[in-house]
Structures are given as structure tokens and as C-alpha cells.
Amino acid sequence: MRKSLEKAQRIVIKIGTSSLIYPNGTINLAGIDQLAFVLTDLANRGKEILLVSSGAIGVGMNKLGLKNRPTSIPEQQAVAAVGQAELMNIYNHRFLTYSQITAQILLTRDIVEYPESRKNVTNTLNQLLKKGIIPIINENDTVSVEEMDHQTKFGDNDQLSAIVAQITAADLLIMLSDIDGFYSANPSVDQQAILYHTVHEITPEICKQAGDKGSEFGTGGMISKLSAAQRILEADSAMVLANGEKPQVIFDILAGAEIGTLFCNANTFERL
């Protein structure tokens, strides 16, 4: 079954903050360089690649010398503004090393909920892919809010990556995180935890096995990844959740190696 993943043409890669920022708060430059190399090589093979990248607040905290994540929304938004500029500067530098052009796309939830703006952003993404450009997508953290009468946040980039996969009709979402896949329990505290290699349905029992806390420098958690997987299953696409410590794992995933957890419907691979 997994061998069919190599047929995926349009691929969304989601990289989490934990794969971009070391536990001590400094930037994982080696990981970013490897990611740029891998995605450029895939683009050179003729694949259409979209990168959904977290890390704006984490990079901003590093640049401003902050040890703890700000608690107020204005502070977080200011740190994100600093971090997003620095993050794109790093990405541009590393991708240009491999002669790959990138573009920045910042989104809020209302953009994809309103038909006209959703059409516009979809057209933009399609044109970038047509020109061989890799869009680097993030939530616009400097303006996103979550209030009763005006919700513009996606919640986290797990959801954003699944939505990007939906609106671009991507064949595959590869979600790189700080865990090897989806387990029956937290493997760091339960040695009996079992790694699920394939999941065809997000059931209440599956959801109960997920935690809900992200890292100090990012947001989200396993329950968020399951929610994203549910979107992917509803779109009859496929998603692989794997450890992003070494981005070259993407090559192995596309080669059909049994890495991480594959979320897919039974008939998904008939479409690829």
C-alpha cells in the first residue's frame, strides 16, 4: 500500500516548531538546511511542493532573547512579527543555496472561509506551483484573533496544513513533528505504547488515546493532529505523521518505507 505514496504529485509538508527550534530555544539551522535540500530535490523531480511552517514565535523568542513564551496576545503577536521575518530570511537563504525560489503566504481562517478570498488564495497557490515555486505558508499570527464574533485563527498549523491540502486538492500531507507517529498511549511514559502504522478512521477510542499539550515554543498536540487527519480522510487524501528530526525521512516515506503513521481511506491509493 505505502509504495503508492511515490505516485503523489502534489504534496503538503508541515513542519512543527519542535523540528525548527532546539529545546534550549536556539534555531535548528541544520534541520532547516536539510528540509530545504529535500524539498528542492522533490521539486526537481517534478513534484508540486507546499510547505506549511510553524516557528514564528519560537524564532522571534530566540531573536529577542526571551526564555519564556509571552502570555499576552499583543506580546505574542509582536514576537511573531519579528520571528516571521527572521524565519523567512533563513528559509530564503537556505533554499536559494539550492537555486529554489520560494514565496511567503500568510493566512487567516476567514480568508479560506469566504468563497471569494478562498478562490483568490487557491489561484495564487496554483500559479506558484505552476511556476515551480514552493509556497511557504504560515498563519498570520500578528492579526489572527479568536473571539466570539470574529474568529480568524485556525487554531494551529496542524489544522492549517490540512486545510491547505484540502483547498489545493493535494495528494498527500506529510506532517513532521517531534514524535514517531500515533501511539496507543504516550510512549514517553508508557513503555507498552503501540505505534499505529495505519489508521483508516478517527474513532472516539482513537481520540481518547491522544494527549492535548504542545511544546513551550509551539501549539497543538496529538489531538490536533488527529483533527487534521480527520479533514484529510474526509477529503479522500492521505496523511503521514512522522518524526521531523531528520527531514530526509521524507524521501523514505515517499519510497514506501513503513515510517510513522499513515492515515488514509481504503480507496485512497486507487486515486493516486
Results as ranks from 00 to 15, higher is better:
R2E: 01
R2Y: 06
K3S: 15
K7I: 00
A8C: 07
Q9L: 12
I13Y: 07
K14Y: 05
S18N: 13
S19T: 10
L20I: 15
I21F: 06
A36L: 01
F37Y: 02
F37G: 02
V38M: 04
L39T: 08
L39S: 11
D41P: 01
L42Q: 00
A43G: 12
G46S: 15
E48N: 06
L51N: 10
S53H: 06
S53A: 14
A56T: 00
A56P: 05
G58E: 05
G58H: 02
G60C: 05
K63Q: 11
L64S: 05
K67L: 09
T71A: 13
S72D: 14
P74M: 14
P74R: 11
P74L: 04
E75Y: 04
A78I: 04
A80F: 12
A80D: 02
Q84T: 00
M88A: 08
H93Y: 08
F95H: 09
L96A: 10
L96Y: 07
Y98L: 12
S99T: 11
Q100C: 11
R109D: 07
I111G: 07
I111P: 03
E113C: 13
Y114H: 13
S117T: 15
R118W: 06
R118Q: 10
R118V: 04
K119P: 08
N120I: 08
N123T: 13
N126H: 12
L128A: 10
K130C: 11
K130Q: 09
G132Y: 02
P135N: 11
I137Y: 06
E139S: 03
N140E: 04
D141F: 06
E146N: 15
M148L: 14
T152F: 11
G155T: 00
D156T: 06
D158A: 01
S161Q: 05
A162K: 02
Q166E: 14
I167L: 14
T168V: 09
T168R: 15
A169P: 05
I174M: 06
M175F: 12
M175R: 06
S177F: 08
S177V: 08
I179M: 09
D180H: 14
G181D: 11
F182T: 04
S184V: 10
S184D: 12
S184P: 08
P187T: 12
S188M: 13
S188G: 14
V189T: 15
D190L: 14
L195C: 15
T198V: 14
V199C: 06
E201H: 12
E201S: 10
I202Y: 01
T203D: 13
I206Y: 01
Q209S: 11
A210L: 08
G211Q: 13
G211W: 07
D212H: 13
K213G: 14
K213N: 14
G214R: 09
F217E: 02
F217Q: 01
T219G: 10
G221H: 03
I223F: 02
I223T: 06
L226Q: 00
A228Y: 00
A229R: 02
R231D: 01
L233R: 07
L233N: 07
A238P: 01
A238S: 07
L241E: 02
A242V: 08
N243M: 12
N243R: 11
N243D: 15
G244M: 08
K246F: 05
P247M: 07
V249K: 09
I250Q: 10
D252Y: 08
I253W: 14
L254V: 00
A255F: 08
G256E: 07
E258M: 12
E258K: 15
G260F: 15
C264S: 08
T268V: 10
R271S: 11
R271P: 04
L272R: 02
